[in-house]
Design a protein around this nucleic acid. Sequence first.
DNA 1: ACGATTAGGGTAAACGTTTACTCACCCGCG
DNA 2: CGCGGGTGAGTAAACGTTTACCCTAATCGT
Lengths: 339, 339
Amino acid sequence: MARVTVKDVAREAGVSVATVSRVINQNGRFSADTERRVRQAIERLGYQPNQLARGLRQQRADLVGVVVPNISNEFFSRLIMTVQQRLFDAGLSIMIFNTNHSLDMERQCYASLAAQRVCGVISANALEDVRAAMRHDVPVVYIDRPAELAPHVSVVMSDNVAGGRLAARELVRSGCTRPLLVSATAHFPITEVRTKSFADTLAELGVFLPDDHVLTPPATDFAGGHAAAEEALARGLDFDGVFCETDRLAIGFMNELGEKGVRVPADVTVVGFDDVLLARFGRPPLTTVRQSPERIGELAAYTLLQMVRGELAEGRRELVPVELVRRESTMRGGVVADS
Amino acid sequence: MARVTVKDVAREAGVSVATVSRVINQNGRFSADTERRVRQAIERLGYQPNQLARGLRQQRADLVGVVVPNISNEFFSRLIMTVQQRLFDAGLSIMIFNTNHSLDMERQCYASLAAQRVCGVISANALEDVRAAMRHDVPVVYIDRPAELAPHVSVVMSDNVAGGRLAARELVRSGCTRPLLVSATAHFPITEVRTKSFADTLAELGVFLPDDHVLTPPATDFAGGHAAAEEALARGLDFDGVFCETDRLAIGFMNELGEKGVRVPADVTVVGFDDVLLARFGRPPLTTVRQSPERIGELAAYTLLQMVRGELAEGRRELVPVELVRRESTMRGGVVADS
DNA sequence: ACGATTAGGGTAAACGTTTACTCACCCGCG
DNA sequence: CGCGGGTGAGTAAACGTTTACCCTAATCGT
């Protein structure tokens, strides 16, 4: 299986390599007849341009780096799927890196991306400045990071202020007067904004959130929620409503409540954040603030494309709206499943 | 930020480019003193070798392609995390593609990987022959695909025969005499093996699985399980135990049963497959056949590395053991949460 | 003492593209 | 009829590495 190069195609089509290149990239001039001959030759030989050579010549690869803290978090995997789809359609491949929330790993990722001469980077929950780390002024889109805008630096994130407010209002609406907060800030700094907005809104509504009603479990997944519920019950905290800053926290929390005979929503109402697939199919179905990784990914990809093409000089900031999805976990008067 | 090349390093260190290259790649000969000078120069200039140029020269990139059907499936995301970690440690970057179970998309992925001149491919649940599609005899590790071995072609998968048997035995042990099967074969051809082994074992144990007790929902996630349970109840099927070929199917199934007042495990016992994170924290905690994407990923990465380095001529087949994790969903005599 | 070997390192070709320069030709216009 | 401009296409340089080949000096064996 000898590799077929542009030279072979040129010979086969009876033209020069320059012409072949021009046809492939649709720039420069060539006659319709020549184009046909070249395309036929490409087809016949099964030619595939060597991206390495192309990248070397153009001083950048048709490749973008995507850096996320935890790919097995549904938010990020869904984000990646849309980003990949959109960029693929634009002829770009993506290179995904997982940092495990580690700064060290993040640095290594940026180094690797720099070595690959990627033409752009999308970084979610970045702990560090990408361009500084890469020593290269490649376009960057930050997701869920409060970075300053700059030329070639954009930011996309959910409207966490609105999110926190929606959660607080829904909890109060469901009759909650003694709230509890399960925080995710330890792993996701951005959620600090949610927390603040949630607390502020509660205060506005005249509901008090005591300091010891703020739990910060060691993880933000089911196990974390489970642990938080255990702790709340063990410490004998008096609460009738919970805001978990992540659906997985909320689901773990609810399940542990169930184990201990505390009923949701009868005894405690619960609001999550994200709207993961399971939120709808859990028991009870979870009321949550939906953020759309698809929409965020779409915007990130679109923005990056613009920057890569030089169509966007200044960098932009996008705040993606969130929406409350009301389900059983906050429906006090609603249907409570069996039991 | 002008790119610094090997030439700059050579000048800075007072040696030739060849020497710099030799030091970086640790081949050829050079004195300890020279090495020190070169390393210092690299450090001072912040030099990072251009992977594109390197790849072009060596006729292959230090890059491996990873192709999966659905990255937001926990099995695959965990698989990817270990693969990435292992290969990264070996100096390789990975390029992930998501096919959405689409043959068309899969073909495009292989084409893209061929264009990138990757040095290896790991493909999970492949629908097609990778090397044929790539027109290039790059080393390949298939995951969960019953491919024929060949030079540079290896296969890693869970022991689905044992898995199906474990599930059947556990269901029968839990007292099930009227089993139900929720299949995933429509999306994951490999699970046909599970199905067969499950059915065979039931037969051996003298338990009959009627044809109309095999459900094949349109999806293999929570929604699919939900739908399957709805269908089973609507059709008035008489069953007291269920094997769902995926944990997500099982969880969706259980939750819908709960909605309808059917108790697990009192009325129906349930066995899943995978052992996703949630299995342990669900209500009730799910008995399941654990397969380890980490172990599979590790093996796949290791095998690919060997093939890439030419240390493994013939291709090998690895069958990764599975294990039964018994939890509440099959514990008839056990503690049943409230209700 | 002298040829053979080895250690250390330099020179330049090659990898497969893209693209800046060319150049030949044709057409239309004065 | 001469000439300017446009059209189509070829030539060759350049991108940043790696490595085959070569050269010099030193070491070693007899």
